[in-house]
Design a protein around this nucleic acid. Structure first.
Length: 284
DNA sequence: ATGGGTACCTGTCTGC
DNA sequence: TGCAGACAGGTACCCA
């Protein structure tokens, strides 16, 4: 599910509300992608810091435990690195009922109950001593620059892409050239920049890389404003669905007329994933 | 080193 | 109605 906009919308809905709050209890459901790495009770008695995002990961800093607040355990500060996988969402609510079959991580805090719901369980919650310590560091190491990082320019994007022979669709999806765009937003950004998703990275001119970066930023920014996309599962921290899916120009629109030229939008499969594009408006 | 395929897991929808 | 098969927002890992 969640691509950068959905993760960012989630972060925006949680950061202020969680900051400074205390963890009173913690619980795990079914196993996720990786084990937490520490006993879940060791999260109790810690104070939450400002939630941050890197790519599609979220980082919730946690102070060293205070015995007076919760459990007795001593420990060092650290945090949990969260990933929403394909079907995850994080919700903070004052009065949550009993955990459902897809609720796999819960922090009961004085700010409410923070709950990760993830039917497919591709998501993750991993303890790390710091963002730049393993295992967080190892997971984040492969990520490319943030799309809104001002040091990322069309020139730099062009330099990175010129080293690759894969298709532009595959390269953007891989997240090591730029993070954040997944299957929906890659299709949309390529349409908006008029680039054929099958085009080889090393054949893209610098002006086209420039246009691609602009389109990617515009698409992601619009999606964040609209609360992300909800295809089926995604809800923000307040339980609200996104609205970008209604603005998609090609994604999920196979056979429908392209809004620019009227020709039918095509769906092809690249690396086992659907790609939507307009063969007329998008050129190699 | 790069690139492609596989695996993880559950739910929903389609077509026979 | 039942059931098999395809498909779904991601990504670490393995092998060529």
């Amino acid at each position: 599910m969640p691509e950068l906009p959905e993760v960012e919308v989630t972060r925006q809905g949680l950061a202020d509300r969680l900051e400074g709050g205390w963890v009173r209890a913690a619980r795990l459901g079914k196993p996720l992608r990786w084990p937490l790495g520490v006993p879940v009770d060791s999260l109790v008695g810690r104070q939450m810091g400002v939630m941050q995002r890197r790519g599609k990961y979220l980082w919730l800093p946690l102070s060293a435990p205070q015995a007076a607040v919760g459990a007795a355990a001593a420990g060092e500060p650290g945090g949990v690195l969260l990933h929403l996988g394909m079907s995850g969402s994080l919700n903070l609510s004052a009065s949550a009922g009993a955990a459902g079959p897809h609720d796999h991580f819960e922090l009961d805090t004085d700010r409410g109950l923070l709950r990760l719901t993830d039917p497919r369980r591709f998501g993750a919650v991993v303890w790390s001593d710091a963002l730049d310590a393993d295992p967080a560091a190892r997971l984040l190491a492969r990520l490319g620059p943030e799309p809104f990082d001002t040091s990322l320019t069309g020139l730099r994007l062009h330099a990175m892409l010129s080293q690759r022979r894969t298709t532009i669709k595959a390269a953007l999806l891989a997240g090591d050239v730029v993070v954040g765009a997944g299957n929906i937003y890659v299709s949309e950004a390529l349409f908006r920049s008029g680039i054929d998703p099958r085009q080889r990275c090393d054949r893209l001119s610098r002006p086209r890389c420039e246009r691609l970066l602009q389109a990617l930023r515009a698409t992601l920014a619009q999606a964040i404003t609209l609360g992300g996309s909800t295809l089926r599962d995604f809800k923000d921290a307040h339980g609200t669905s996104g609205a970008f899916q209604d603005q998609a120009l090609v994604y999920g629109r196979e056979g429908q007329p392209c809004g620019q030229c009227g020709q039918a939008v095509r769906r092809i499969v690249q690396a086992q994933r659907s790609t939507y594009f307009c063969p007329h408006c998008q050129r190699r």
